[in-house]
Design a protein around this nucleic acid. Structure first.
Length: 567
RNA sequence: GGCAGGGUAGCUCAGUGGUAGAGCAGCGGACUCAUAAGCCGUUGGUCGCGGGUUCAAAUCCCGCCCCUGCUACCA
């Protein structure tokens, strides 16, 4: 019988997702690395009845946006707006279900950031210090290290970047480069002294260590990397820059400076929560509701992003939170490794990537969600190939799951006048066993979901589909429908109920097609709202005419898409 | 250089002390309801290399080789 496998009291969970930088469209690496895992996790918890707030936004500030604006002869706002809209479209297309996807370019965010800045200043966590930085006199701008090129002082490579030499791999300081030149104008940068606010990160080393040490449930690479950085000691870092595109410093006399992105962007998690609470999106209408996720003791916050973002979420953001006080530190930071594209790292700048908006013009979202979840880079880098995409689509979605739904519905339609057959009062052992197996899967899949082992969660759900195919084959309802109608009726009744359970189990990963299965089973409303349990299919229910859930893809897709990649 | 992750069947990967696993590909078979899908059986591995600990190691320790990533003032 259907049952909720375990019903603890509702939890409060903040699903915090990396802020994409608004200088280009999103690609498959972004989806696989943070947006899709976050969405699967959030959908699962919503089905469990937990109180989920899933937020993120466009990171709108920073030098690259300014530079791009100048290249195109437009404003930073226009560049940001373009990609912000692209992000919103991508999330809608792929079913990434943010409660709020805002940006750092809001008054609210500036206000929250400035509040934190002032409180940290009062608390002695910030101080002013002079720095010598490289300045491009032609474009009148201080240069981030990456915008300086020159000869590597170590290996003599002539096109070393200011932060790192691509030839010998050395970590560099831009002022040490020989014959430095600006990448913005080719001018020779000048050394100029400028004054900036520094964050006293060094003061938090011990507190952070005490906080991270017991986090044994974190992914090993996240915890080890963080502890390694703490062992080496944290240097204080400048949190302001000589820029005009960014959040202003809330003090007199600092009009030419802005709060820098690495300090300001992570604050977005908090400002977005506040924006959501005060907006019409909050059904309760209480602007103070953000406190539920940020101040309640048992609230959990889970931060999804790629591994390159680990220090910002395990060192810098926690330091800011500790300095500010009275706000929850991250509960977990399930950072993913990288998704490589046919062996090469996905990169916005280098090409060879599958752009999220483009891919959706030719394929449905669920096959991508499925593939990226099944091959998620949870423990090590994983490779996206079109051949694997086509194979998983055809073998696993079409043949195993879609075909299961289709064959059961078709037999039912042709032999039982499209009505769910009546099963006998006592089910056979194999029928009972299969139903129990589905119901039990809600516990095992749920456990994997909560540990953010999404590959495993999906694998466990798909095993149930395999068991259902085996059951059908053993019971051969297409044979018994002629000789022993009751036997076939029981088989189909059970199979339809198993499919109902699978629609729910797979919904976090496959929301679009699970909803279609829901409709094919004549369930009213939305699968998302049905809870984390199998919804029974009642005998006698009239079923609509089935249509295939997934499209089988021809092998020629592989060549076509690979040709597109190299363009 | 430092740090991290990885090196297991042709391919993609799971498996952290107790007789080597899954999916796909390959081979064979029974079936035919279904988008020729599904089901059953089967071939295939000195678990990167060399030492060590142990009654027992893919799994723990040491050394080495190779791959990837990170190394935080691009975000």
């Amino acid at each position: 019988m259907p049952q909720d496998t375990h019903s603890p009291p509702p939890e409060t969970i903040l699903v915090a997702v990396a802020w994409p930088y608004a200088n280009n469209h999103l690609h498959m690496g972004h989806l696989a690395g943070s947006y899709l895992p976050a969405d699967i996790y959030a959908r699962y918890h919503r089905m469990r009845g937990n109180r989920v707030l899933m937020v993120s936004g466009s990171d709108s500030h920073g030098t690259p946006v300014t530079v791009r604006a100048e290249e195109e002869g437009t404003t930073p706002e226009a560049i940001f707006e373009r990609y912000h809209q692209s992000f919103l479209d991508t999330f809608e297309g792929y079913g990434i279900s943010f409660d709020l996807f805002t940006s750092t370019n809001t008054e609210n965010h500036a206000r929250v950031t400035q509040d934190i800045f002032l409180r940290l200043l009062e608390g002695g966590h910030l101080y002013e210090a002079e720095q010598e930085l490289l300045y491009d006199p032609k474009v009148s701008r201080f240069l981030p290290d990456r915008y300086v090129e020159g000869t590597c002082p170590r290996c003599g490579f002539e096109s070393a970047r200011g932060d790192q030499c691509d030839s010998c791999g050395a970590t560099l300081d831009a002022v040490d480069l020989i014959n430095p030149r600006s990448r913005l104008s080719d001018a020779t940068p000048e050394r100029r002294v400028t004054s900036h606010f520094m964050l006293r990160l060094s003061a938090f080393t011990e507190q952070l260590r005490a906080w991270v040490e017991p986090k044994t449930y974190w992914r090993p690479h996240v915890r080890n990397f963080t502890l390694g950085m703490l062992r080496e000691g944290l240097p204080d870092r400048a949190i302001t820059r000589d820029l005009t595109w960014g959040v202003p410093i809330p003090l007199e006399g600092y009009e030419s400076k802005r709060i820098y992105v690495w300090f300001e962007a992570v604050i977005g998690y908090l400002s977005a929560s506040k924006e959501w609470a005060a907006s019409p999106l909050n059904p309760n209408g209480d602007p103070e509701d953000w406190r539920l996720w940020w101040q309640a003791e048992d609230a959990k916050s889970v931060y999804f992003q790629g591994k390159d973002n680990i220090p910002f979420h395990t060192i810098i953001w926690p330091s800011i939170l500790l300095a500010y006080g009275d706000l929850n530190l991250p509960y977990d930071v399930p950072a993913n490794q990288y998704l490589t594209m046919s062996g090469a790292k996905a990169s916005k700048s280098r090409g060879g990537v599958v752009w999220a908006p483009d891919a959706l013009e030719r394929f449905d979202p669920d096959p991508f969600r499925y593939y990226l979840a099944a091959a998620a880079p949870e423990t090590s880098d994983s490779d996206f190939t079109w051949a694997e995409f086509v194979r998983r689509n055809n073998d696993e979605l079409v043949a195993r799951w879609g075909n299961l739904v289709n064959r059961v519905l078709t037999i039912t339609r042709r032999n039982f006048e499209a009505r769910v057959p009546q099963a006998p009062s006592t089910l056979s052992p194999e029928s009972t066993a299969l139903l129990e197996r589905v119901d039990q899967a809600f516990a095992s899949v749920g456990e994997a979901m909560e540990a953010v082992h999404l590959r495993r969660a999906l694998g466990l759900a798909m095993e149930v589909a395999t068991a259902a195919n085996q059951y059908l084959d053993a019971r051969a309802p297409w044979v018994h429908v002629k000789q022993n109608r009751d036997h076939a009726a029981e088989t189909l009744f059970v199979a339809l109920n198993v499919i109902s359970g699978l629609a729910s189990l797979l919904n976090p990963v496959l929301p679009f097609t699970s909803q279609r299965v829901w409709t094919l089973l004549a369930h009213p409303g939305e699968v998302q709202a049905a809870g984390w349990r199998r919804t029974p299919v009642a005998a006698g229910t009239e079923l609509p005419e089935p249509t295939p859930l997934f499209k089988k893809l021809d092998d020629s897709v592989v060549e076509e898409e690979e040709a597109r990649l190299t363009r």
